[in-house]
Simulated assay, not measured.
Amino acid sequence: MAVAHLTDTTAPAYSLRVGLFGAGRVAGQLGPALVAAGHAVAFVWSRHAATAGALAAALPGAAVLPGLEAPLPPADVYLLAVPDAAVAPVLAAVAWPTGAVVAHLAGALPLGIFEAQPEVLGGVLYPLQTFSAGRAVDWASVPLCVEAADAGALNMLLVLARSLSDDVRLLASADRLRLHVAAVFANNFTNHLLGVADALMTEAGLPAALLAPLVRETVAKALATGSPFTVQTGPAARRDVPTLGAHQAVLAAHPAWLGIYNQLTASIQEVLPPAPGPAGK
């Protein structure tokens, strides 16, 4: 089957039946996105029946799969939008139809996780985005990383991915794992550091909104350059020992945050050579 880019008006429309395992943050946004792209969600399963029912009720025609031991409704592709640790148990618990196309959505799990279920055609449909309740995601801009060993399964996942996103990439497991590590630094660790900053502002009786222009410019500048390392500023970069010491004194009451501060300072100085002369902020 030729793979068509579904945003191309000359391409035929594909409507796939999707079985959705999971009803959490990812599935809760993926389900409506699939329907909006013209696909049908055949069923929703979750270990929490209430959340499965709530999501299925929002998806026209979707049933609730009562349990993993229940017979599977027919679908063109089954998506495992469950926590990473649940992928293998779900795979093992379901009586998959022979030749079923089954894909997980995890960044760090290899394609090899499907080897224990030779009856399925395994694949990956990894959305590189953070998902939170109450925040809508623009799926057209979300990079979708696809992988499958079987050509038919790969084509099926490419059709599905291209109906959701304008940025679809073939990515092998090893590269996807490296991408996932980078994403943790860019998203999870950054979010934690922003949380520490917010807590310090609250502790000082200062409005956290004061930091908003700085955060926006920091991210914009980092994205505008080929390497964020080259636009690093601050006391660590300029090896401002008195300022570093003053900061460390403020953080003495928070040993864990002081440890992060010292480790990041050391990492910045390891990456950046000493400046030849006085540097600006």
Rank of each mutant, 00 (worst) to 15 (best):
V87L: 10
A93L: 13
D167L: 11
D175R: 12
P110K: 10
R162W: 07
V101S: 03
V120T: 15
V159C: 12
L154Y: 12
V87R: 06
A140G: 07
V159D: 05
L105S: 13
G99Q: 05
A136P: 04
A140M: 09
D175N: 13
V101Y: 03
A140E: 15
Q117R: 15
A136T: 14
A183W: 02
V168F: 03
V102K: 02
L111S: 07
V101A: 08
V181K: 00
C145G: 04
V159I: 14
V77M: 01
L80Y: 08
F185E: 11
T190K: 05
G123D: 08
L79E: 00
R178M: 00
V124M: 07
A81N: 06
L111H: 01
D175W: 00
S163M: 02
S173G: 09
A186R: 07
L121D: 01
N155P: 00
Y78S: 00
H104C: 12
L80S: 09
E115T: 15
D76K: 02
T130W: 07
W139E: 13
L91Y: 10
A86Q: 15
R176Q: 10
A75R: 00
S132N: 05
F131C: 04
A183F: 01
S141D: 12
L170I: 14
A182D: 03
L177W: 03
S163N: 03
W96A: 06
D138S: 14
G122S: 06
L171V: 15
N188G: 12
A153G: 07
A85R: 13
P143A: 12
V124G: 01
M156F: 01
L157P: 01
V82S: 10
A95C: 09
N187P: 04
V184A: 10
L160M: 06
A140K: 12
L164N: 06
R169A: 05
L164S: 05
E115L: 11
D175G: 13
V87M: 11
L111Y: 06
A88G: 03
S163L: 03
T98S: 14
L109S: 13
V168Y: 02
F185I: 12
V184Q: 06
A75E: 00
T98L: 03
A85F: 04
D166C: 08
V184H: 09
R176Y: 04
S141Q: 15
D84E: 07
L125M: 14
C145S: 12
D76H: 11
A106Y: 11
G122Y: 08
A75K: 00
L79W: 00
L111Q: 11
L144A: 08
A88S: 12
A95D: 15
L170M: 10
L154T: 05
M156N: 04
A161G: 04
R176E: 05
L125W: 13
A88Q: 13
A85S: 11
L171F: 03
A133H: 14
D167F: 14
A93W: 13
L125K: 02
V94S: 07
A174T: 14
Y78R: 00
V137C: 05
A86V: 13
A161Q: 05
